[in-house]
Computed example of a mutant assay.
Amino acid sequence: MSIRPGPRNLITDVDGILVGNAEDDRVRTGVTVIYPEARCAAAADVRGGAPGTWNIQALDPTSLGNQVDAITLSGGSMYGLEAGCGVVAALGARGRGVVFGGAVVPVVPGAILFDLMNGGDKAWGEAPPYRALGRAALEAAGPDFALGNAGAGLGARANALKGGLGSASTVTADGVQVGAIVAVNSFGSAVMPGTDRFWAWPLEMEGEFGGLGPPPADWRGEPEMPLPPNYALNPMANTTIAVVACNVALSKGDLQRLAIMAQDGLARAIRPIHTPFDGDTVFAMATGKLALSNPAMLARLGHLAADTLARAVARGVYHAESLGDRPGWRAWRDAG
């Protein structure tokens, strides 16, 4: 096979990328930090109708620079944007960032998802936990990390099932590395209606989300649109946020195209996607270890990123664990 998962099947199979998670089980929320060992180029693409993001305009191809020191994915809706403040403070104390004279300014974009209705204790007053969680996630950054009820995926829900944090990687025979990480908190479903099969099943590698294969032969297709059941239908209470990374050197415009193409991975794994109720956002990072040989290589990278992200979505739901017995918080593995 010319492509395969990396040794960890995580985004950290892209050389130079580390990930850290931090959770607050009492609040039922968490933060994930994607931390490049060296500053690297990044871009962002927003497709959902209800996004919550921080500092992504700095990544626009028309802006002065597009290198980042970290990217944060957080629960907490707007409160979760404080996670980026915690990461900025911690990185600044390390001397990591853009240096202006004697000043150090870390560049840390991020995105948030809505997890405020999962039964956790949200009575934090004027002291939400996200700044501290951001610092803790950065401190935990390394090559290995948990999936499912971890980091930004702890309090997530995917349609009528428990959502979670997923990750996957793809490596090629000629040395290209592509990885994805995603917090799945989607209005749409990652599972084919009436079955336990994932929409991403054709892309599965090495049984990474159960190895169940296609839907049963008597499956009759989906409804016109597979809406969540009434108990899970909370408009504006969703969002799937993700990062894809590669080890190829890309220009600003190339990175933007990579982020755009990677969004198709969400469409391959979740139906419906990019709805008015989601804030679907995908970041792209490039560590620049390999040269971009030609424009066709960029198309190849985007294709690999989309498929890898789709696999990561399925893995996030596959590894999730139930949050109690309430409808909508049962995990895929417990849904039966």
Rank of each mutant, 00 (worst) to 15 (best):
A291V: 09
E224M: 14
D280T: 05
G221M: 12
A269M: 03
A320F: 07
D218A: 12
G221S: 07
F277P: 06
M236R: 14
Y318T: 02
M285Y: 12
D307I: 04
M225W: 11
Q256Y: 15
V313T: 01
R333P: 13
G316E: 12
A249Q: 12
G328K: 02
I273C: 13
G302D: 08
D307C: 06
G211F: 01
M285I: 08
T308N: 14
A269E: 00
G328C: 09
W219L: 07
V244E: 06
P228I: 07
M297W: 05
T239P: 00
Y231K: 06
N234H: 15
D280E: 10
L301M: 13
L250S: 12
A296Q: 12
T239F: 01
L309W: 10
L304Y: 12
G328L: 00
R268N: 00
N238K: 02
W332K: 00
A296C: 08
I270A: 01
P229Q: 01
A259H: 06
F209T: 03
G207S: 07
N234F: 07
T239A: 02
F283R: 04
I270G: 03
A296P: 03
L258W: 04
T239C: 00
P276D: 15
L323W: 06
L227Y: 14
R326D: 09
M225E: 09
T275I: 08
P228H: 13
R257S: 15
A249D: 11
A286L: 07
R300Y: 09
L292S: 15
F277N: 13
A217K: 05
A249N: 08
I260Q: 07
D334H: 11
L258P: 04
G221A: 11
L292P: 02
A237L: 10
I270T: 04
D280P: 03
D218I: 03
A237N: 10
M297H: 15
Q256A: 11
P216D: 04
E224K: 14
A312M: 10
T308W: 08
R257L: 15
N247R: 11
R311A: 03
P228Y: 10
R333N: 12
G279T: 13
D307W: 08
A306N: 05
M225C: 14
Q263Y: 04
D278V: 05
K252Y: 03
A262L: 05
G279A: 15
G302I: 09
D325P: 01
E208A: 15
H319E: 09
A299R: 11
G302L: 06
T275A: 05
R300G: 09
W219S: 03
P226I: 06
P276H: 08
H274C: 13
P226C: 11
G265F: 00
S322R: 03
M261L: 05
P214Y: 01
V244I: 04
L255S: 10
L298S: 12
V313E: 11
R326P: 01
L292Q: 00
A296E: 11
G213W: 05
F283K: 06
A320T: 02
P276F: 14
P327R: 04
